[in-house]
Simulated scan of single mutants.
Amino acid sequence: MGGEPGGNLRELRGLHDEGVFGFKGFLLHSGVDEFPHLEPDDLADVLREIRAFDALMIVHAEDPQVIDHAPPAYGASYRDFLRSRPRGAENLAIAQIVELARRTGCRVHILHLSSSDALPMIRSARHDGVRITVETCPHYLVFTAEEIAEGATEFKCCPPIREAANREALWQGLADGTIDCVVSDHSPCTPELKRLDTGDFGLAWGGIASLQLGLPAVWTEARRRGHTPADVVRWMAERPAEVAGLSRRGRIAPGFQADFCVFAPDEVFVVDKDRLHHRNPVTPYHGRRFADVVRGSWLRGVRIGIDGPSRGRLLNRGET
């Protein structure tokens, strides 16, 4: 994946030709000074440029002006933090992206959708032929703002975890196909950056550690709502592979790579952060009960394990 922090339009075609899957940009401060955000005019220029070679633009969609005019986040109150990142910031940013994608014909992908308010707009855009795909994350499908305690900064992410009614609307968006896929958006944040000692949401780093827990988290909640393992496979394997352009991954079928796991869908376990394989044992899932214990994983037909040799490799666009 390539980055588009502005000012590198002339480099994008070369990166694409070398095999990057797409280009990521932020519409507000990324939290990292060396990756500045894109102004609307800059984003329009990028979309026009990469449309010429049919590349994909993926966007962190929050409007900076809405957030600048919201109450600032500080202290231990999650309610105050939620007010500092209102749904309107996502909704307005997504509206801008939809209009620019409509105007340029470029493919766009909305990262980590948390505001269900944007779903009707996305459905309407697709009906009009706008080439837009959307993802959400396990934490938006599992947690609710109402359950987050004072100072529980392990729950901080941007956009934030919202209310229970919003969560259910996201599930409906998955069920009807408005939301294409569920991805981890894993954040390997250290305990120090999470400010667990002070519980200050204004100072804590955002991001959820969930890479190891995504499948059981989504499956546990999905089956409560009447979904099947095939639905979860579509959301977490098939559609992500299609969006990324991995033409031989994401399905168990002749001609596809034999990447799969075997799991016990009814076996229950309790998450213990100290037993996770994450480098930094910080996760809001600690103490949560999930169904689905993974028995084994296979990569390209070879069984792999945590303690075995690494079998991963860097993939380029079009490579399987």
Score class of each variant (00 low, 15 high):
Gly177Met: 11
Thr144Leu: 00
Pro120Ile: 06
Glu147Cys: 05
Pro138Tyr: 07
Val130Lys: 03
Cys157Ala: 14
Arg167Lys: 15
Thr153Val: 08
Met121Ser: 08
Pro138Gln: 09
Glu150Thr: 08
Cys157Arg: 07
Leu113Val: 13
Leu119Val: 04
Glu154Tyr: 03
Met121Trp: 04
Cys106Gly: 10
Ala145Ile: 15
Ser124Gln: 14
Phe155Thr: 09
Glu146Tyr: 06
Ser114Ala: 11
Ile110Ala: 10
Leu119Tyr: 10
Ala125Asp: 02
Ser115Cys: 15
Thr104Ala: 03
Glu135Cys: 02
Ser124Cys: 12
Glu168Tyr: 04
Val130Glu: 11
Asn166Thr: 12
Arg126Val: 09
Thr153Trp: 00
Phe143Ile: 13
Val108Gly: 06
Thr133Arg: 11
Gly151Glu: 11
Val142Leu: 15
Glu150Trp: 15
Tyr140Ile: 12
Ala175Cys: 14
Cys137Ile: 07
Trp171Leu: 01
His109Glu: 09
Val134His: 15
Leu170Phe: 08
Arg126Gln: 14
Asp117Gln: 03
Asp176Ile: 01
Ile110Pro: 08
Val142Lys: 12
Arg131Ala: 07
Ile148Tyr: 01
Val130Leu: 04
Cys106Gln: 13
Ala164Leu: 04
Asn166Val: 15
Leu111Gln: 08
Asp176His: 03
Met121Ile: 05
Ser124Thr: 12
Gly173Lys: 09
Ile122Ala: 00
Glu147Trp: 06
Thr178Lys: 03
Leu174His: 11
Pro159Arg: 03
Gly151Lys: 11
Ile179Asn: 09
Ile179Ala: 04
Leu111Ala: 07
Ser114Pro: 09
Ile148Gly: 03
Val108Thr: 12
Ala165Phe: 10
Cys158Leu: 14
Pro160Lys: 04
Leu113Pro: 10
Tyr140Trp: 04
Met121Pro: 05
Arg167Ala: 08
Trp171Ala: 03
His109Arg: 09
Leu141His: 02
Cys158Met: 15
Ala152Gly: 12
Val142Met: 13
Asn166Leu: 15
Pro120Glu: 06
Ile148Ala: 04
Ala165Pro: 12
Asp180Glu: 02
Gly151Arg: 13
Ala125Phe: 01
Arg126Lys: 14
Gln172Asp: 14
Ile148Thr: 07
Ala125Met: 01
Val142Thr: 14
Ala125Leu: 05
Ile148Arg: 03
Phe143Ser: 11
Cys137Met: 07
Phe143Val: 12
Phe155Pro: 10
Ala169Arg: 13
His139Met: 13
Gly129Asp: 05
Asp176Pro: 02
Thr153Gln: 07
Ser124Pro: 06
Arg123Cys: 02
Gly105Ala: 09
Glu146Ile: 02
Cys157Gly: 12
Leu113Trp: 01
Leu111Trp: 01
Ser116Arg: 14
Lys156Gln: 05
Ser114Gly: 05
Ala125Arg: 02
Gln172Glu: 14
Thr136Cys: 13
Ile179Thr: 09
Cys157Asn: 10
Ser114Thr: 10
Ile132Asp: 00
Ala125Ser: 05
Cys137Trp: 00
Ser124Trp: 13
Leu170Ile: 14
Gly151Leu: 12
Trp171Tyr: 01
Arg162Cys: 06
Thr104Glu: 10
Ala125Val: 00
Thr136Asn: 08
